[in-house]
């Protein structure tokens, strides 16, 4: 589904990613771990299409097409979803209204009929239940005045409604207490399917107790320095990142 080849990218003249290679197939969950400044967020931003990041070398293929040529909204319509590390507060834009516009843009792109208000509400209700979200939040302005946990839950709620093919979770666990973490993980697990791939970016192994990955990759200095199965995460928990950085 996704193939990253020798990806180099940076921001403001600073080189951050220094040759990433990664292949993700449908149905797989990949965890990308790494210390601060290793390039985790740069990778997610580049995949989502943030224009402030500049790709200097390499290629990203998504379903066989050149991902880097696509505008952010085209990527979304082709099934890519990124849950933001810092979801943006947008005063005055209603959460539900926005989500309906987004979903219908995606459905239109897929050649599916747009949902009317009634069908959309039905869909939203079922996903709110799945996410164990406070129903009041869906009628507020996007993320405005939400707590940290509510923002992250709202991201996964958006993901549930938009039904992506490839989901990128950028440090969705950061700043969450254990209860919020469990309920976010529960929402994510409910969305795992053989058709959907996920890239879970995290700083902490803790999340991977609840979202068990198929593969774990360690990012350091802008490169993947080690890849393995879910047990790699446990090694990291025990030994820290130091031994890998030394090995490079």
């Amino acid at each position: 589904m996704l193939e990253i080849k020798n990806l180099h990218a940076g921001i403001g003249g600073k080189k951050i990613l220094q040759g990433i290679d990664l292949k993700v197939n449908a149905g797989e969950v990949h965890a990308i771990m790494g210390p601060n400044g290793s390039g985790k967020s740069t990778l997610s931003q580049v995949l989502a299409g943030r224009e402030t990041y500049v790709v200097t070398e390499g290629q990203v293929l998504y379903q066989g097409g050149d991902l880097l040529e696509m505008a952010p909204e085209e990527r979304a319509r082709e099934g890519i979803f990124m849950a933001f590390q810092y979801p943006v507060e947008i005063p005055g834009v209603n959460n539900t209204y926005f989500l309906k516009a987004a979903l219908n843009a995606i459905r239109k792109h897929r050649g599916e009929p747009e949902l009317d208000a009634m069908d959309f509400l039905k869909l939203v209700r079922s996903k709110v239940k799945l996410m164990e979200m406070d129903e009041g939040l869906i009628n507020r302005s996007v993320n405005e005045g939400f707590s940290g946990g509510e923002k992250k839950r709202n991201e996964i709620f958006h993901m549930a409604v938009l039904d992506p093919r490839l989901a990128i979770l950028d440090e969705t666990d950061s700043g969450l207490d254990i209860d919020a973490l469990k309920s976010v993980a529960k929402g994510v697990n409910a969305l795992r399917s053989p058709q959907r791939a996920m890239i879970v970016i995290t700083h902490y192994q803790r999340l991977l107790n609840y979202i068990v990955p198929d593969f774990v990759h360690v990012l350091s200095g802008g490169k993947i320095v080690k890849s393995g199965g879910k047990e790699l995460a446990l090694d990291l928990e025990a030994k820290g990142y130091g031994w890998l950085e030394e090995a490079v």
Binding site: A48, G49, R50, E51, T52, A71, P72, E73, R75, A76, R77, F81, M82, F84, P87, V88, I90, P91, G92, V93, F98, L99, A101, A102, L103, A105, I106, H109, S141, V142, H158, L162
Partner: peptide, 25 residues
């Protein structure tokens, strides 16, 4: 706000619509 525009676009809203939505807001 550039962050808001990107956030909306990353969910599938095109650039013009994102600008309109934020202006209206």
């Amino acid at each position: 706000d550039a962050d808001s525009i990107f956030y909306l676009r990353s969910r599938g809203i095109d650039l013009d619509s994102a600008r309109h939505l934020l202006t209206y807001a």
